[in-house]
Amino acid sequence: MTPRLWLSRSSRLALSFAVLALVILLALRIPALLSAENAFQVLRQAAVQGIMAAGVTFVILAGRLDLSVGSLLSLCSVAAVGLHDVVGPGWAIAAALMLGVVVGAVNGLLVAGFRLNSLVATLGMLSVLQGVTLLSTGGRNASVVNPENTWFSWLGRGHVLGVPVPVVILAVLTVVLSILLTRTCFGRYVRATGSNETAARYSAIPTRRVIFITYLISGLMTAVAAVVMGSRVMGARNDSGTGYELTVISGIILGGTHLSGGCGSVVRSVGGILALGFIQNAGVLLGLPYYFQWIVIWAVIVGAVWVTLAVQRRRVFA
């Protein structure tokens, strides 16, 4: 094991310990934090971002960014909810998922095909999708007229053996994507492309196709998250997903994935999102003013990055 690999592994461990320690400290202070009722609620509320994070992790591991996921979440949830009364829940869900894959494909084409800078391309897509959502709704909200009489609501509000369905969906997808990342050739290709794209290309890895597929995954997962969110709320606004891309990426960073790509894991990204959810929830349970939560999240993320760097460089101040 090379020294460099050991350092980055120990810095990731340090980060995980620091985050866990924070959550445990909070739980000691607020006994209700880890009660079954509260924990399930936090999980259910964080499930949407967790599903998105599982998909976006692939893009980041391949060394790219996807900032359009927030607007895509709005668009797909508007599609799913808006079409529910027109073509029925089944076709509405299918349409939303198709939309996610199509947008992912366009992102993939721009970044992998035309080799555009991923930050710029997906930032542009963020605005385009917002515009498309506004145009299609004319500013009005989408909602389901009879929320009680449809199986669509089970996805966001139902329970399986006492566990909320969004949490079950999150768990299943995390396991599936984690297996995809760690146990398949494709997963290895993704990490290789992210660590050193030139070396990967010279090793006969089809890097452009790999990056394209990561964007498909990101789009599809965002669409799934949108269906879950639409089902939970039984309504959708044009700006339902605004700002989600920032929380998703924050959670991924908190989970120890480097933004430069190459190393990271789906499980830890989802863990980062859940940790953020618990920390925010702790703020609410402590009765902190609403604005305080933003400062807390900032502090947590800066702290996370600092811990990673400090352990890596073996110095507190680099």
Binding site: R232, G235, R237, N281, V284, L285
Partner: peptide, 23 residues
């Protein structure tokens, strides 16, 4: 008991109310 902003959003109204119910 408490007053929290929910940003005119249905989803935030739902999650803020869920928090209130826990509290």
């Amino acid at each position: 008991l408490d007053a929290q902003p929910a940003n005119w959003s249905r989803e935030r109204g739902q999650s803020t109310m869920e928090n209130f119910i826990i509290l």
